[in-house]
Design a protein around this nucleic acid. Sequence first.
DNA 1: AGTTTAATTAAGTCAATGCTTAATTAAAAT
DNA 2: ATTTTAATTAAGCATTGACTTAATTAAACT
Lengths: 100, 100
Amino acid sequence: MDPFAALADSTRRRIVGLLSEEDRRAGDISVHFETSPPAISQHLKILREAGIVRVEKRGRERIYSLDPEGLAAMESWVSDTRRKWNGRLDRLADMLKEEE
Amino acid sequence: MDPFAALADSTRRRIVGLLSEEDRRAGDISVHFETSPPAISQHLKILREAGIVRVEKRGRERIYSLDPEGLAAMESWVSDTRRKWNGRLDRLADMLKEEE
DNA sequence: AGTTTAATTAAGTCAATGCTTAATTAAAAT
DNA sequence: ATTTTAATTAAGCATTGACTTAATTAAACT
């Protein structure tokens, strides 16, 4: 699943929010939600495959951490879009200026 | 549909890309895609309800334009997440510094 | 007035998504 | 060695999402 679709789900965004604060074990993520541990595990898998999150096995626990690279796609799309939009505003400003 | 879900679809992101260049009539958007005009119209409705796009009726045409406010939610979520993440890195750097 | 054009809404189909409970894997503890 | 604990995978189900064609709305043209 691509990063945009991965972050379309609010539960997954909340997970990312938790991991932006600190690395956490799967169970420590799970307790923050009403949904079952398997559901959270499935969300984590999606985030992993989207490159947004990493896992590290530690004994029988899995430590999840944010992979900031994963946000890059979204960040650059947004900033590109914003830049193009601003470029239009700038050209409009120029046109108005030449009318003076 | 919330802005994140609205932008999870690549067709809708392409529409936003087109509108970041210039305002366009529904039909002028539609021709850029293989899918049928009704499908594009449905996408436009979703973008409208997410606050990402605006319409203006002009005779029997509808002129679509980008509503940059609509991107704000995504932008601020991403930058907040990034900020929290960076904050962690900073604290880590401080800790390493104090060890010197 | 009647027809064409621009666009949307309606209705139905199919695939994808998110959830649940049950089953499995594998490490830790007794 | 057996049992408990942490987490995931499997299977099934209900909902949502994106698409299609057909029908509708409304403005423009002749």
